[in-house]
Design a protein around this nucleic acid. Structure first.
Lengths: 218, 218
DNA sequence: CTTAAATAACTGACTGGTCAGTCATTAAAA
DNA sequence: TTTTAATGACTGACCAGTCAGTTATTTAAG
């Protein structure tokens, strides 16, 4: 009856891809890649399914776009942050961990690790891309920082790559847990407090033994 | 022509469920629940698809059976191990971590955490079951151990539950990583060495400050 | 010790529903 | 009027779950 003057849709060529990526990220993280229906992505992005195919070639291409769009800028920001700072390694690590949770931890991007890990078997190329562009880069820059700390005598001697893994593991685990089993866990889980504790234990465990008189007795 | 005396199949009522569960675990871990085809499970188990339905009501029921069959005995073994031992908490922790990797880490069960985490969104009841029957129990028994260590003055004062999480996080992460991104990672990853480093850092970070004159100053 | 009947483990072609991807059509914008 | 963003009904492939039929095994009669 009276719907002729109401616009049914608008042309928004510029905004569509970002909105679709946001909707897809949410659903991929929530339900996994396979279980996510493109109709639902379209609905959440406020378009029809056909529109998805104007901007992305396939469901898999959309998946790749989600990862590439959201991850690469994040990594670059992190690397810059590390290169900019100069001071005690322990302090920088502490700051990095906390900053990471503030910027990434509570945003939607935080669901990516779970998504990538879940789908790695079905998307080998994507897994390889993620390892190279994210994991490897982050691990390398952290390892460099650890090495610096060892060189200055701040940290005890150890393999910087394993140390980097051990610094990152509880962080990534927190991100994964938050987007998987935490909702079913009765125990409270304050990530900020958890990370503070992690830093406390980790950095104390890493410092060179206090060289008072006799160094270490192990 | 000459195939009449060759048996096409055998009756093996007792062995079937276990073989099907094994095949399903492998494929679920490798490809995820949704992407796993029951035809392929059947093929790998050496039966036809119809046979699956003689032993399991549905694909989901098979999933539950995989988890329940493989997880519960493992947990009980762990709890018994902890209750049996009496000595310095640090030593027990160290032994537990190493033993865990020897028994669980290299077996197929090790793929379960990835599987559960991946599918938690689609199977809330299963996620809840896993949290209650695995995560919570393990965390509780570790926290108890930590508390014991604090009471005896072996460890410094801190929240035992977060400490338990932090002990477990790198272990679980290793298990997950091994079944997801490790195959795409160029960096070598010796889990045994990684866990040794973890124990080294973690236990050093956790010990009470060497009470030389004034005891604790927190 | 046969051998035939009864039992139940097992099979695999089939079905009904689901969904990624297509495309002829519609309508907003230029 | 032309151009092109956007639509949504449609299709072809795929697969969980079914079931009528097949065959190994057991039982018991001859």
């Amino acid at each position: 009856m009276a719907q002729t003057d109401e616009q049914r849709w608008q042309r928004r060529k510029a905004e569509r891809p970002g909105e679709i990526i946001d909707a897809a990220l949410e659903l991929f993280v929530e339900k996994g890649f396979m279980a996510t229906r493109l109709d639902e992505v379209a609905q959440r992005a406020g378009v029809s399914k056909g529109t998805l195919y104007l901007y992305f070639d396939s469901k898999e291409a959309l998946f790749r776009a989600v990862v590439e769009t959201l991850v690469v800028p994040e990594i670059e920001r992190t690397e810059q942050l590390i290169d900019a700072y100069e001071g005690p390694a322990a302090e920088l690590i502490s700051q990095l961990v906390k900053q990471w949770w503030q910027t990434v931890g509570e945003s939607r991007v935080c669901g990516l690790p779970k998504l990538i890990i879940s789908e790695s078997g079905n998307f080998p190329e994507l897994a390889r891309f993620y390892v190279e562009q994210v994991i490897d880069r982050v691990r390398r820059v952290i390892a460099k920082l650890i090495k610096r700390g060892i060189a200055t005598g701040e940290f005890k001697s150890c393999d910087p790559v394993y140390i980097a893994r051990l610094l990152l593991a509880p962080m990534v685990f927190a991100a994964i847990y938050q987007h998987s089993l935490l909702p079913y866990d009765s125990e409270p889980f304050e990530v900020a407090a958890y990370l503070d504790t992690h830093l406390d234990i980790f950095l104390h465990g890493l410092v060179a033994p206090v060289a008072e008189s006799g160094a270490a007795e192990t």
